[in-house]
Computed example of a mutant assay.
Amino acid sequence: MLVTHPFHPLVGRQLRVCRAVRRSGGLVFICTAGDGVTVTLPQEWTDRGPAPGRNRLAIDGLGALSALVDALMSRGVEARGGGSS
């Protein structure tokens, strides 16, 4: 399997897959990188994952991020007693 995540230290290296495991709703691969080193990689960080989109920031992801920020901001306001300064 090829590591494709651009910021992973093993990017471009072929690894031997020992097994695949479902974790947190996604597939991860447990691989050997040589010299007894074991690496766990999400499927999306390999050539076995879906092809990356043209743009790194997809509309769906930005929408989910916006909703998360809004939820966190409203929790912070509630925790401080509400209202604006």
Rank of each mutant, 00 (worst) to 15 (best):
T4A: 01
T4R: 09
T4N: 01
T4V: 09
H5N: 04
F7W: 09
F7V: 02
P9L: 07
L10H: 04
L10E: 01
L10Y: 06
V11K: 05
G12L: 06
G12W: 12
R13F: 02
R13T: 10
L15Y: 00
R16H: 10
A20H: 06
A20D: 03
S24C: 12
G25I: 13
G26V: 14
L27V: 14
V28T: 05
I30S: 07
T32A: 06
A33S: 07
G34Q: 01
G34M: 05
D35Q: 10
V37Y: 06
V37E: 14
T40V: 15
T40L: 01
L41R: 06
Q43N: 02
W45Y: 09
T46Y: 02
D47G: 03
D47C: 02
D47Q: 03
P50T: 11
P50R: 13
P50N: 09
G53Q: 09
N55C: 11
L57D: 04
A58I: 04
A58M: 07
D60Q: 15
G61D: 14
G61F: 00
G61S: 06
G63E: 15
S66L: 08
S66V: 01
V69G: 01
V69F: 11
D70G: 05
D70F: 10
A71D: 15
M73G: 08
M73V: 12
S74A: 15
S74D: 13
S74Y: 06
R75Q: 13
R75E: 15
G76V: 07
V77P: 11
V77N: 06
A79W: 00
S84I: 11
S84F: 14
S85C: 04
